[in-house]
Write a protein that binds this DNA or RNA. Sequence first.
RNA 1: GCGGGUGUAGUUCAAUGGUAGAACACGAGCUUCCCAAGCUUGAUACGUCAGUUCGAUUCUGAUCACCCGCUCCA
Length: 585
Amino acid sequence: MSAPAKSETPTMEKIVSLCKRRGFIFQSSEIYGGINGFWDYGPLGAELKRNLRDAWWRTMTREREDVVGLDATIIMHPAIWKASGHVDTFADPMVDCLVTNKRLRADQIEPQNGMVYRFTGATGSADTASSVPFAALAPTGKPRESALKTARAFYLARGLQDPEPLGGETGEKVEGTTAFNPENGAELTEPRMFNLMLKTHTGPVESDENVAYLRPETAQAIFAQYKNVVDSSRVKVPFGICQIGKAFRNEINPRNFTFRSREFEQMELEFFIKPDEAIEIISGSVAPWSEGADLTTPQPNWGWELWHRYWVAQRTAFYQSIGLGNVIHYYWQTKEELAHYARACVDILCEFPFGTEELEGIAARGDFDLSQHQKHAGKPLEFFDEELKTAAAALPPEALEAMVQRRLAAEQTKEKGALSEPEVRAWFERLAKGFYLPHVIEPSAGLDRMALAVIAKAFEQYEKIDPKGKSETITVLRLHPSIAPIKVGVFPLLKNKPELVAKAREVFQLLKGKLNTFYDESGAIGRRYARQDEIGTPFCVTIDFETLGETGPELADTVTVRQRDGATQERLKISELSAWLLARI
RNA sequence: GCGGGUGUAGUUCAAUGGUAGAACACGAGCUUCCCAAGCUUGAUACGUCAGUUCGAUUCUGAUCACCCGCUCCA
């Protein structure tokens, strides 16, 4: 029997369904109907996420000697968000056009002059009518008819046929108004604040004085604790501080499963480097970047550009190690897109079923963040560089002056944020004494996005015709073994043979402390393999009658090892099993 | 935030103004069973709140959630 071909379910839906069915990702608070923008990780998702988090932490700090970790609170002093600019830029007054429903930023509307016509409602054909008032602006030079046309569109959108607006025979003159859409003169809604930071209050009383924010990014904690880390950890520039933790953004429109959610986990590194001028004083010159430059080992004469490229290469290697090598892409932000304090920013994108979207941003941010905190907190955050001081003392004054002149010329070409000559000279004076605010390279990745990316990349479904001619859908999650939630499944071939079960339990006990191991005895062996395929387990071990020595002593204490990819099998001695498996994850 | 669509079992889907059904999945049992075999058997669902009605999973409204398109994404 052949059922009519069902319309192809989009891949994303299948992934969401698998995630729920197998316990990777659940909707938060699901038994109460769910809550928009929040997701929970089930047993397998928690393991997967932990594996990714651990892999990041291991490569970013434990395997390096120039990066240390930090674990800061989610709620911090509100002044931090003032200094970072989040209080101002995260709270935008927004208005909506009543005709087109377009959303505009209230503070970006050009003030207009003209005549405002106020309508009290409208009547239309086919007994349609409306008593909703509406106002429209006819800008100076435009006739009343233009306001009337907008009003008709307004009432048309509310279900009236051939609407004829009522009232509004005479207009009132206005100047410098921002209450109307410059495009069509339509009335706008009252400005509403859209603050992307989640707010709470500390202490027992809710008042404006004790407002606190849930951090919208983990980076600021690193800058805020930068001095404590420097003072306590014997680090020397260049060095980094990394952190993994929850961050919160009150997204207007969370979308695409866990890709954009309101509570998410970030993995950020702030890597502090010497300003290029300091490199020049110490090393004589800054090494230039060019295509094909050797980025494997950091060099003392690297400036920000080589460090930036270095971290892009490091992060690329990381994505390769978790199996995303061939689905990542790069987007270099253009000068126009860059924030004024950033020198360069590359987005690492990944192919998702819903499009190619950002997984990580690697920004070269200069000293903006530390300087902001130094200013707002009123505490010096400069780093004292002994080597720089010594080198600067040996530098001829003309050489330093030449650098000042070059910098002054560079400042003049800046469109905004340019430093004045006294500011530049003061900065160089501190530099010559060995003091500077380190510049920052910031690789900032989203853990939840990464988890979604590896699941989406690993997800594979195909149709298989079984020997009876029945077609079935096979689902395999081809996760990289290093991040798979379960590394190995252990099965007795049959569960009603106590000797097989006992041996299988023995093998399970042997492996479970070393690898995340799953014991399963229910269902046919093929079904058990399929179950593990679906959750991405790379290896399965089956204890059969050969293991018990029934077919001869040479196969005694050997097991079948079945691999997910390729579905190949081989026999291994139990004594060699754990070493064999550990070498492959 | 706007517009459109969808909410029934763990999943994918039926049916119905009066008792909700299947397939797969899941649990127990039988089976020398290596890639979702078979047999027996069991548990499990109308998103939420109102309204209309003698009676609502079904009709209406609101709300919540998800999907698609716009918008937004420091």
